[in-house]
Nucleic acid binder design. Structure first.
Length: 369
DNA sequence: AAAACGTGGTG
DNA sequence: TCACCAAGTTT
């Protein structure tokens, strides 16, 4: 049964709105993009911060702003350099969509930026949350931006115990978010809700004592350190274990790299030709990607770095590096030979990047170079 | 509607 | 070691 909530009265909502605003004005963090929020900086920030911690994403935002300060400069940037700058942030489709979106803004919109959330959502990588954030912060569009923080804050405040990742829980939260929104300053209000979630209404052990919404919060905990029931989630992701072998194939002073397809894990990044064996799959053969069709001319020179675990959102990888000496320079699809110093400049997964020094040093200097 | 998509931090 | 989470979107 879907709970309807006149749990919070109109007056309670109005009062809470003012208290939240007051709290935000005196307690917000001095984040760099709040200095002068233009649409480009804000859009860039919102894309980077999707599913990302502020302290991790901030470095990337600063790098992008420094290299490409406008939609126009980003639109004409080299896509490989964009991927390299994004390297280590994860969810790499965001980086490809970033470039696509910049081109649309620069070439199609011609600097004539729309002001509504609905319009911004036309850009690839800009969904319901991001479009509302941009439109409200930059143009005062009255759209509620509902991110993970907002879901947590609002579900707790109203005591919604339906799963927030299903319509039964999501819909009442959206309704409440719309009623709660401060139409006199939607941008500030949206940021205030998120800031509250980030600073006080934290996932674990929220600081209810100092919360501006604590008077009528249905999830207020009495004891410090307690965690409310809300938000409830239904979804559970299953993580599969995979044995991943990177084949480090060298020919004279060069190493063979492969560009991964744009879809799927590490889409668009470069790697050492890899072999994936899903231990939970019935069909091992089908899940093995032979790194090379023709292995003639390859001479195995053994494992190089200690095998280690690398966690993705849906995979638990056991990563091994296998080295080979090659007599012939293969030319296979999506593969290319690079000098080590050039290969290092390619956008590569963290699982490889973290071990690069050790990998390069473990390969003996070639006598042919 | 549900699954896929990275990485790093935390308890 | 594990589970959960972080300014979600795409298919």
């Amino acid at each position: 049964m879907v709970r309807n909530f006149e749990i919070l009265t109109k007056n309670e909502i109005i009062q809470a709105r003012a208290q939240l605003k007051s709290w935000f004005i005196s307690n917000q963090r001095p984040l760099p993009w709040r200095d002068s929020p233009d649409p480009y900086a804000t859009w860039l920030c919102e894309i980077i911060m999707q599913q990302t911690r502020i302290d991790q994403g901030t470095r990337y935002w600063q790098s992008f702003i420094a290299k490409w300060p406008s939609f126009e400069s980003l639109a004409t940037a080299d896509s490989e350099e964009i991927m390299k700058t994004w390297q280590g942030l994860g969810y790499y489709s965001r980086a490809r969509n970033l470039h696509k979106a910049a081109k649309i803004v620069a070439n199609d919109w011609r600097g004539d930026l729309p002001t509504s959330a609905k319009s911004w959502q036309q850009l690839p990588g800009v969904g319901p949350y991001t479009s509302a954030a941009i439109a409200s912060i930059c143009f005062g569009d009255p759209s509620a931006a509902i991110d993970g923080n907002a879901l947590r804050v609002l579900s707790r405040w109203a005591g919604i115990h339906e799963p927030i990742d299903k319509p039964t829980g999501r819909k009442p939260i959206e309704k409440l978010a719309g009623e709660f929104l401060d139409i006199s300053d939607p941008g500030m209000h949206n940021q205030a809700v998120m800031e509250l979630g980030a600073l006080l209404c934290t996932p674990k052990a929220p600081n209810c004592e100092h919360c501006p919404l604590n008077e009528n919060c249905k999830s207020r905990v009495e004891m410090v350190g307690q965690t409310p029931i809300a938000p409830v989630k239904a979804g559970k992701i299953k993580v599969r274990r995979v044995a991943l072998t990177f084949h480090v194939i060298v020919n004279e002073n060069k190493v063979l790299m492969r560009q991964r397809p744009s879809q799927g894990i590490w889409g668009g990044l470069w790697e050492f030709p890899s072999c994936w064996i899903d231990s939970e799959s019935d069909d091992l053969e089908k899940n093995q990607l032979p790194p090379l069709n023709n292995r003639q001319g390859l001479h195995e020179t053994g494992p190089i770095v200690e095998p280690f675990e690398h966690i993705l959102s849906h995979r638990k990888l056991k990563v091994t590096f296998q080295s080979w000496r090659s007599n012939a320079a293969f030319h296979e699809k999506d593969m290319k030979w690079f000098r080590w110093e050039d290969a290092r400049k390619l956008p590569i997964p963290r699982a490889i990047e973290k071990n690069w020094e050790e990998l390069e040093n473990s390969m003996p200097k070639q006598q042919f170079s």
